[in-house]
Structures are given as C-alpha cells and as structure tokens.
Design a protein around this nucleic acid. Structure first.
Ligand code: FES
Ligand code: FES
Lengths: 137, 137
DNA sequence: CCAAAATAGGATTAAATTAGTCTTGTTTTA
DNA sequence: TAAAACAAGACTAATTTAATCCTATTTTGG
C-alpha cells in the first residue's frame, strides 16, 4: 500500500482537529488518539514531525498540546505526507543498481516519472478543509 | 514503493522478449534471468503467474521455455501487474476496521478512489511494445 | 528408455520495511 | 514540586515482500 499508516493517521488527526476547532485550538495527543482509536505514543511521533515542518505548533506542559498553525486551506495531502513519512513513490529506479539491477533505461522510467507527477498533483489539490468537509464523522 | 520487484521483473522480462523475438519465439527462464541479472527461480515463479493468466505460454522439456501469446500491443502494464502481484493499491480502507480503525468515512476515501482510477487508467495506456520502443537497451 | 534440461507448484525462509513502543528528558502550570 | 504534557532517539515487533528449496512432471536427444 502506497499510503503509510502514519501518513494516514496524520491526515485523520488534522481532519479531527479542523472539525473540532470552533471552541478551542489546542488539542492533546491523548484526546486525538482516543477519539481516533489509535496509539497515543505513535501519534505523538507523528505530531512531532508535523511540528518540525511547521504545519502545527506543539506546546509542552500541563495545558499543552498541538495547534494547527499553517493556513488550513493551504495544507494539502502533499504537505502532510511530505512531513510525516515522505511523499509516496510509485517506483524507485532511474538506473539505481540496488533496485533494478540494470544500468540502462528499461523504458518504464519515463512512464513512472510522468505518473508520479500526476499523483503528486492530485495530492497537492486536496486540502485539509476540503477533506474535513467531506468527512461524515 | 508501489510497484513490487516481481511486477517490475515481469515487465522487464517481457520487454526483453519483445525486443529479442525477431529470430525466435521461445525463451528459457535461464536466458532471461541471466540477461536481466535477476534470480532464475524467482523469475520462474513470475513466468508461472503470467502463464496462468494467459499472457504467455510455457513449455516444459529440453526445448521448452516461455513464449508471449497475447497480442503484444494489447498487453498493458495493468495486465502484467494484475497477473503477477496484483494491481497496486494506493490505500486500502473503505471502513475496513483492520486498516483504519474507523467505521465512518474520514473523507479520504473519495479522493483515493478517484486517484486509484486515474492510476489504473495510466497503467492501461502503456503497452509492452510501447515500453520496448522506449527502452534503450 | 533414460539422463538432461526445462517448467509447475507448494512450503518455507530470509530480508526489508513499516508500525509501534520504551526510556529518558524537558517544559509548564496549578 | 508533582502531574500532565511534548521531544527525541533507540529499540522491538509485526507485517509484507523477496527469494529459495524441494519434489514433481514433461520433453527430447542419444
Ligand atoms: S527498472 Fe531500472 S531502468 Fe527500468
Ligand atoms: S482511512 Fe478509513 S475511513 Fe478514512
């Protein structure tokens, strides 16, 4: 599967936050993990990565938690995936001996490069507000 | 990575066969494996699968080997992937508890369904003769 | 007719990747 | 100053993917 669990959790968490931020902006990992029924410490790791890339801000201490800081209709799937587990790639090759054992272009590269771009474009089209609207939670 | 090693080997093997079938039609696993520098027995497995799906024919015995039987400009990446390791899927979910722990639509499903179709269309566009022409081997 | 060269197919193992946890530390607030 | 939070790196577990092994069966040439 192309989309890793962590990438997926990240998106869902942000959707959760967006859909619940009328009354508050700061959410603890605990709350989000419980609501989405995922591991708290795994989610903490994910939030760390999102924070490092400046999508969210995280605050330590008793009243701490995370808060989305990037404009929510500018956060795309591309941004999130890039921050968490990296943009998923269809096929690594481009004469990389370790992967394809060839040292010439077998013909697939052009195709995969093109399709990869197509996929990335799609990822860039979808924003988190977009998804939040579609989510029927 | 979305495209498995086996799917990839399959494509490359068929390209090899297409590019070398002016003088003969039957190729042994040994020959192809050596030329592409991949494992003979692993490739044998791959050919089995292609044979089971009717893309190639395989003949036992001393003068045996495999032969492409489906019209080479009708064999697409889609066909090959489907035969070998299955069509790669971007993200399995659709409320599958084992995968997403949710039981509602988080909003990503619509997007992934659409993008999956897009990808599959691309796979259906590319034929093996197509690739063979582009290969610079 | 039998040895050698092929494929067939199921079982198994090995390697690599991905998912998740642990441990220790720091910050913040009541 | 204790409790509740996040930080970060090391580590482990689980899963998936890649590859091999083993035991047939088929075919053909000598
Ligand atoms: S897979 Fe390496 S050149 Fe095509
Ligand atoms: S990942 Fe399961 S509903 Fe979205």
């Amino acid at each position: 599967m192309l989309i890793s669990q962590a990438n997926d959790y990240a998106v869902r968490s942000l959707i959760y936050i967006v859909k619940n931020s009328q009354y508050k902006k700061i959410f603890t990992t605990k709350e989000v993990a419980e609501k989405l029924k995922i591991s708290r410490i795994f989610l903490a790791k994910i939030f760390q990565k999102l924070a490092n890339k400046g999508l969210i801000n995280s605050m330590k201490g008793v009243k701490g938690g995370v808060m989305i800081i990037k404009d929510t209709d500018k956060i795309t799937l591309y941004d999130i995936f890039e921050a968490v587990d990296g943009i998923p790639v269809l096929r690594k090759c481009i004469y990389n001996r370790k992967i394809c054992s060839l040292n010439y272009d077998c013909g697939m590269n052009k195709f995969f490069n093109k399709t990869q771009k197509l996929l990335e474009n799609e990822l860039k089209k979808v924003t988190i507000v977009n998804l939040a609207k579609k989510s029927n939670y």
